[in-house]
Design a binder for these strands. Structure first.
Lengths: 167, 167
DNA sequence: TCCCAATAGTAGGACGTCCAACCACTTGCC
DNA sequence: GGCAAGTGGTTGGACGTCCTACTATTGGGA
């Protein structure tokens, strides 16, 4: 969290009003700015909860993905597809998890281009602890009831679908 | 955009199902993951639209803030409050805008600790052009009608309020 | 069979964000 | 008046993301 004292007004709403006066319809701009800011808030909260456990949200997501996989292992390119990350981001994350002995890199038995990432027992334990820390703070998502959370998910899923994230 | 081919299924929804089976209620996790991913999509779209004009969304927002200010100038700390950025992020952004001759740094007349940032004429022109590029792509926000966009803004504003972003 | 396009992963660099630490200046209080 | 606490901004480092470029390997078609 940028740890600023809260403003006495909503800066996004104020910017939207000025935009409306000076430029034109501001609804889309306001929505996008809201997404950007809420993401930042959630990222901060989640990372703060994970810091004592030596993880970031990006690395935590990778651990969860591996825990959910059948063998506790996946090729790097599959991880990139599921987490929707650039190959270089996967390399970066796996580097750090490996340095922390939470995952291992192994060669693929038949395709020598492919690197298979396997979660270690330490990785499984770390993931469990981290999951507790995150559920304790509700992933930083505050202020909404169950119906509103479902509504939010539905709206954002529609955006992802329209953007061609999946079909 | 990570430029991956779209998956034939929604990876977030799949993760939520596994979470539900193995860990517990997944609604909050799914909502948070959706926000993270949609933010990433929007950031990519917006930055791609701005790249030909030598801007990023962060720098664009700073330019807009200055254009909207009365004198076209604001102290750095005020910029940080309005954009809800860490002081070091403001320094970084102003550095780059200044290197591009889109803003200037000046001393504050009475408080010598304070640095005042002023937009240049080139900055104003760049902002206009960039705004056109962004409105052309609807800020990357696709798939929602006006009512849904308003609904999304309302939900996210509530999250920001509950998180103590403003009062 | 052999070559070439496609695929998997990595290296290096840019960018934005944050934190910790630091210096300069200002303000408040004794 | 002077010192301590607070404020404003920068520097240096960590992290995650992306892009471009590169190597190694695979697989399909001439």
């Amino acid at each position: 969290m940028p740890s600023h004292h809260p403003l006495p007004f909503d800066p996004i709403d104020r910017a939207a009003q000025l935009w409306q006066d000076r430029i034109g319809p501001a609804a889309t701009m306001a929505a996008v700015t809201n997404i950007m800011r809420v993401q930042q808030i959630l990222q901060s909260s989640v990372d703060a909860a994970l810091r004592p456990h030596g993880l970031t949200f990006a690395r935590y997501e990778a651990l969860v993905l591996l825990v959910f996989s059948r063998q506790g292992s996946l090729p790097m390119n599959v991880m990139g597809q599921r987490l929707q990350l650039h190959p270089t981001s996967v390399t970066n994350i796996v580097d750090r998890l490996q340095a922390d002995h939470l995952v291992e890199r192994n060669g693929h038995p038949t395709d020598r281009r492919t690197t298979v990432v396997t979660i270690t027992e330490a990785g499984r334990q770390r993931q469990k602890i981290a999951t507790g820390a995150l559920t304790d703070i509700d992933f930083g998502l505050v202020g909404l009831d169950d119906a509103q959370i479902a509504q939010l998910t539905a709206l954002l899923t529609e955006v992802r679908r329209a953007a061609g994230d999946f079909s």
